[in-house]
Amino acid sequence: MNIEQHKTKIIQKVLNIQDEKLLDEIDTVLNGNYIVAYTIDGKPLTKNQYVNYIESISESIANGAKTFTTEEVRNRIFSSK
């Protein structure tokens, strides 16, 4: 199947969808706003939100935020049992 046939097949499927929620999900994916990650609190993040979130963490670290080594995290987890 070539690219044009593939597109036509997908278009036909989309035209037959009656579920508005599914159409919203397709729209979200096509617009690049789909969820790519979650915060530690479980908040969903789109790609743009995720990039901003990571940049804010990096900025906090650059401004002196406390960080922990892998060994420090491991010790804390295993000592809390």
Rank of each mutant, 00 (worst) to 15 (best):
E55R: 13
A65R: 13
V73Q: 07
I57Q: 14
Y38T: 03
R74G: 00
N52A: 14
V29L: 14
S60I: 00
A62W: 00
I10D: 06
A62T: 03
H6K: 14
K7V: 08
Y38V: 01
I17R: 08
V51G: 03
L22G: 00
D24F: 05
K47D: 06
D19Q: 10
R74C: 00
I11T: 11
T28A: 04
K81M: 12
D19R: 10
F78E: 13
D24W: 04
Y50M: 11
K9F: 10
I11K: 15
M1Y: 06
E55N: 15
P44W: 10
A37C: 06
P44H: 09
E59L: 12
N52I: 02
E20V: 12
M1K: 05
E4D: 14
D41T: 13
K9D: 13
T67H: 02
T8Q: 15
A62I: 00
A37Q: 12
K7S: 05
N31E: 13
R76P: 00
D41M: 08
Y34S: 11
I40N: 12
N52W: 04
I54Y: 09
Q49T: 01
A37E: 14
L45I: 06
T46K: 08
K81E: 10
S79H: 03
E55A: 13
K66L: 05
I61N: 10
S58P: 00
G32Y: 12
Q12C: 02
